[in-house]
Design a protein around this nucleic acid. Structure first.
Length: 358
DNA sequence: AACTCGTGGCG
DNA sequence: TCGCCAAGAGT
């Protein structure tokens, strides 16, 4: 069907003509490639681009990143999601500076050991920066290969991963791994797209099995189904002597190490009356004299595995009868903007408080 | 090996 | 409106 080098040469030729000019494509410095790869995990280029620019502007070297506070790193990441990426990025920057004299490892095996770097990212860095012949197998590559070669094995199974990796490895031009890998991904990203792929003008039109069998839309196959659960949040924005209280999320849960207002979570939607009479409400406000300044409508916030239903309560406390635990940090409202928060909270702040607080 | 971790855009 | 899903990794 294909001679390996024909396939590679064709996709590389396409890439030379069609590639986008992106900032991380004008460098081979591993630090920059690394940042871009982490940002782009499960993220569209259009969404990640501005984050990349801000990130390398603020942290031009790995030493700058290693020296930063995690709060600031997360603040730069705010709104991008999957915050463990930022935490691991920061962790690994510190590791490299402390243990490797600030020098990024220059081969696949050593790169792969770093926290936050899996098979894909290790192959990307090793091939882009050091021209090592490791094939990248990301969502784009799965899509292109499953279609062109008509592979119906689900990509989210061990069997599928093995099969696609073997094929990707077979097709790789070991003399041009950087060009080959970038070409494969770019082709998937802007030509062989998930929806409305440009089959009519495709370089593989005559050979593409999916096109000729008219099953392009069915590929790639995924076995897994994502099930969502519902969660019900009530955030209490407690204002006291010009301060408001925030708390860091440290549990193993969504938004780890981001900040939020005092939270009451319930397994079912609770009526306002029952909430105000609840034990948790009482624990936060005790027998304080307070009044509810504002209560919001229900914000719906959708995550990959959860759907959150959230109310915000702005509460002015005139006579506190109880000191909140030390885990609640009193801050001036204007200082809120320094703390990394979830997009859910950022959305509320944008609508209800001033923009400088975001 | 399944499950978990965000967000925004699109049809 | 809703499900899909985008340059994945950790546990």
């Amino acid at each position: 069907m294909f001679y390996q080098l024909d396939f590679s040469a064709e996709v590389i030729a396409w890439y030379r003509e069609n590639k986008r000019n992106l900032p991380w494509r004008n460098t081979k410095i591993p630090y920059f490639i690394w940042i871009s790869e982490i940002i782009l995990q499960q993220t569209r280029v259009e969404q990640g681009l501005a984050y990349y620019e801000r990130f390398v502007e603020r942290f031009p070297t790995i030493e700058n990143l290693a020296a930063a506070n995690e709060d600031e790193v997360l603040k730069l990441w705010q709104g991008l999601g999957y915050y463990s990426r930022a935490r691991n990025l920061h962790f690994t920057a510190k590791t490299i500076c402390k243990n490797l004299n600030g020098k990024f490892p220059n081969n696949y095996a050593e790169i792969r050991k770093l926290k936050g770097i899996g098979d894909y990212t290790a192959a990307a860095i090793a091939s882009f920066c050091f021209n090592q012949p490791h094939p990248v197998v990301d969502g784009n590559v799965y899509r292109v290969l499953s279609r062109v070669f008509g592979i119906t094995t689900p990509i989210d199974t061990a069997k599928g991963k093995k099969e696609f990796y073997a094929l990707a490895h077979e097709l790789l031009d070991s003399q041009k791994p950087a060009w080959h890998n970038q070409a494969m991904m770019e082709f998937g990203a802007i030509h062989c797209t998930p929806k409305n792929p440009a089959c009519a003008s495709c370089i593989f039109k005559s050979k593409c099995i999916a096109f000729n069998k008219k099953i392009v839309k069915k590929l790639p196959v995924k076995a897994g189904k994502t099930k969502q659960r519902n969660r019900y949040f009530d955030y209490l924005i407690i204002k006291q002597n010009g301060n408001i209280f925030i708390k860091k999320r440290t549990e193993k849960d969504i938004w780890k190490n981001l900040y939020e207002f005092p939270l009451i979570e319930n397994k079912k939607q609770m009526s306002e009356n029952n909430l105000i009479k609840s034990k948790k409400w009482n624990e936060l406000l005790g027998k304080s004299r307070y009044h509810i300044v504002k209560k919001s409508s229900i914000y719906k916030h959708v995550l990959s595995h959860q759907k959150l239903f959230t109310r915000f309560w702005e509460i002015e406390v005139s006579k506190p009868h109880k000191k909140l635990p030390d885990s609640f940090i009193p801050i001036r409202e204007q200082a809120l903007g320094k703390y990394p928060v979830s997009q859910l909270i950022a959305n509320y702040l944008e609508k209800n408080l001033c923009k400088q607080n975001i």
